[in-house]
C-alpha cells in the first residue's frame, strides 16, 4: 500500500461514549440557547416597541413592586455561583459535593419561582389590563416556565449522580445543565432590568 495517511486520521486510542468538552450535547445546548435567547429578545423587542409608541405614562397602571422580584434576583445570582461550585466539585472528583451543590441550586431556583408567584399577586395590573400588563406577564411567565424546566433538569442530574452515572472523567451532562442554568440567570438579569428597574428611572 502506498496510500499516504494524513496524520490526523491515523488510528489512536479514543474515548468511547460521552467524553470531551464540545460534545454533541454541548452543541445541542448551544443551539437551544440560541433559539431561546432569540425568543426572549423578541419579547423584549415587543416591550420596547410598544413602550416607544405609547402615548400614556409607562407603565400605565403603576410601577411593579420590587419586594419579591429583588430577592428572587438575588436567589438566582447566588444559584449561578452554586452551579459553578457544583461543576467544579465533580471535576475535582467529589460526587457527594456535586449532589449538595445541585440540591442547593435547585432549591434557590424553587425559591425564585415561589417569589415570582407572590410577585404576580402583588402587581397592580393584570394580563388583561393593557398591553404593558400583557407583555409583563407573558415575559415573566415564560421565564418561570423555563426556570421550572431548569429545576427538573437539576433534579435529573442529582438523581443520576446519586446513581453513579457521573464522575470526574465524565461530567458532560453537568456541563450542559450548567450552560442552561447560566442562560436562565443571564436572561433574568435582562428581564429584571427591563421590566422592574427601567420604569423607576425612566420618565413616566
Amino acid at each position: 500500500m502506498n496510500t499516504v495517511y494524513e496524520e490526523r486520521t491515523l488510528p489512536r486510542p479514543l474515548p468511547v461514549g460521552k467524553a470531551g468538552f464540545r460534545t454533541s450535547g454541548w452543541w445541542g445546548m448551544l443551539a437551544l440557547i440560541g433559539a431561546e435567547a432569540s425568543l426572549f429578545a423578541y419579547m423584549l423587542f415587543s416591550y420596547f416597541y410598544l413602550q416607544s409608541l405609547s402615548t400614556q405614562p409607562w407603565p400605565p397602571s403603576g410601577l411593579p413592586p420590587l419586594r419579591y422580584a429583588a430577592p428572587g434576583t438575588v436567589a438566582l445570582l447566588i444559584s449561578a455561583g452554586t452551579m459553578w461550585w457544583s461543576r467544579r466539585s465533580i471535576m475535582l472528583g467529589k460526587p457527594p459535593q456535586l449532589t449538595i451543590g445541585l440540591v442547593v441550586t435547585l432549591l434557590l431556583g424553587v425559591l425564585y419561582v415561589i417569589l415570582q408567584f407572590l410577585d404576580w399577586r402583588a402587581e397592580p395590573f393584570l394580563p388583561s389590563s393593557d398591553a404593558h400588563g400583557s407583555l409583563f406577564y407573558i415575559i415573566t411567565a415564560a421565564h418561570v416556565l423555563h426556570a421550572i424546566a431548569g429545576v427538573l433538569i437539576l433534579i435529573a442530574m442529582a438523581v443520576w449522580n446519586a446513581l453513579g452515572h457521573i464522575s470526574a472523567q465524565r461530567y458532560v451532562a453537568i456541563t450542559v445543565a450548567a450552560m442552561y442554568w447560566y442562560f436562565l440567570v443571564l436572561v433574568w438579569i435582562a428581564i429584571f432590568i427591563t421590566l422592574y428597574l427601567l420604569p423607576y428611572i425612566s420618565p413616566h
Binding site: S46, L50, P127, S128, D130, A131, G133, S134, Y137, I138
Partner: peptide, 21 residues
Amino acid sequence: FMLWCDRQFGTHFFDPSMGGH
C-alpha cells in the same frame, strides 16, 4: 402565541385601544 392570547384571554398585544399595536 400572543395572537392566540389576545383571542383567548383578552390580552392587548395588538389592540391599539389598550396600548398594543
